[in-house]
């Protein structure tokens, strides 16, 4: 009985959907999707970011990059965690806004690359900093 009523309801929906097809406007899907979710910071990755992501999985959290980070000494320590914080903690794009002060401080050190030179697994830390920086600005508010 439940099965029948469920199938019936779906059948009705299908018919309505087909009937409305000629009036459906193309190219609205993406716009609606981004409008629905963009405001909450749920944004697509760019093709470059999609290609970058697997390399970030190489981080094993060893912390050696922080040992050589030249920036670590001179900045308020709660606002900057060093490359190690990015590698181990920057894992959820909607949270990247909380790294905003972090990446504001390393707009210079994103290119010194000494952290990359000691990383045992070859994490592209500069690309990671740029990735986080882009999404920390795109966040809500």
């Amino acid at each position: 009985m439940r099965l029948l009523s469920s199938l019936f309801a779906l059948g009705v929906q299908f018919v309505l959907h087909v009937v409305r097809l000629p009036w459906r406007k193309a190219g609205q899907g993406e716009r609606h999707f981004l409008a629905s979710y963009g405001a909450e910071g749920l944004l697509p990755l760019s093709p470059d970011e999609r290609r970058l992501l697997p390399a970030l999985d190489r981080c094993i959290g060893c912390g050696l990059c922080n040992v050589v980070c030249a920036k670590l000494a001179g900045v308020p320590r709660h606002a900057f965690g060093g490359p190690s914080a990015l590698g181990a903690q920057a894992r959820s794009m909607p949270d990247f806004g909380s790294f905003a002060s972090h990446v504001a401080h390393d707009s210079d050190c994103a290119d010194c690359a000494i952290c990359e030179s000691v990383c045992p697994t070859g994490v592209p830390l500069r690309d990671l900093a740029r990735f986080v920086s882009r999404h920390s600005r795109r966040g809500p508010g």
Binding site: G27, E30, F33
Partner: peptide, 14 residues
């Protein structure tokens, strides 16, 4: 929403 192939790929490039 309903996405075309291109739209879907722009939202998920992978």
């Amino acid at each position: 929403t309903r996405l075309s192939a291109d739209e879907a790929r722009r939202i998920e490039p992978g």
